[in-house]
Design a protein around this nucleic acid. Sequence first.
DNA 1: GGTGCGATCGCCT
DNA 2: GGCGATCGCACCG
Length: 283
Amino acid sequence: KMLALAVAGAPENVNKRNSVSDLKPQGTPIKLTKASGCEKGVGSDRSHYFMDNQQRLGEQFFNQPCISLAKALLGKVLTRRCADGTELRGKIIETEAYPGAEDKASHSAGGKRTKRNTAMFMKAGTIYVYPIYGIYLCMNVSSEGEGAAVLLRALEPLQGLPVMRELRAARRKEGACRVKDKDLCNGPSKLCQALDVSRYFDRRDLASDPDMWLENDPNANSEEPYNIVSATRIGIESHGEWAKKPWRFYLCGHPCVSVVNKVAERQSLSGNEINDFSTSDAV
DNA sequence: GGTGCGATCGCCT
DNA sequence: GGCGATCGCACCG
């Protein structure tokens, strides 16, 4: 606790003003109140919410169908305990479901098991980390169902932002501008960098691992619920019909969404749960 | 604000 | 040997 506090309580306030402007709610009705945004709570202000023993989500939570888990993960807090005791926290705000064998866009398409995708076939809650484009990593969590997993695509950073910023800056050019709060974890590989998720986590159990786990957001009750947008998944255009499945889920209007899909948002708001449109992501 | 492009390498065919 | 469940930067408007 003390370590976490020490880290979180550090120099963050210095940049408060910047962060505030970084996180403007846009578009749709979201409830990004000051208390729930990245700006204020982040770090020092927010960390006290996590001082009491937060209960980690256990096996049962992960043991649900893929699409259902992808939605259930939204709003949960991913916590990473670093080697020095520093705790980094981010709220999951965007996921993608890869339900398994029939899904041609999945690494487990056709039920194929390989060395790489082994974690997808392990018990629900198993972490699947794989390298992509030679230089990046993506993190998934396996769900119920053979070869099914959920890709984590974006987090709202809550605690340990200075550390996250350092971890992210390591990859960037010297002299590049400071990463905005909302950009620290707004992409699948960015969140791996920001939370120091390495390939070492592949095949580990998110329900019992000492270095990474999930919590409920202790602040959730004071916030109005977000609308969940379901949109087409990102980066799988070459997979024909499967590319059109609306299996990407995100909190509507949240500033940390990696790619906004306005068509999907309109459909979600009009109360249509099935967004089987074929257009690619609008800007 | 948006778009285009190159980086870079493990994995699978 | 070819190809990504991506990212950051340069460039344009």
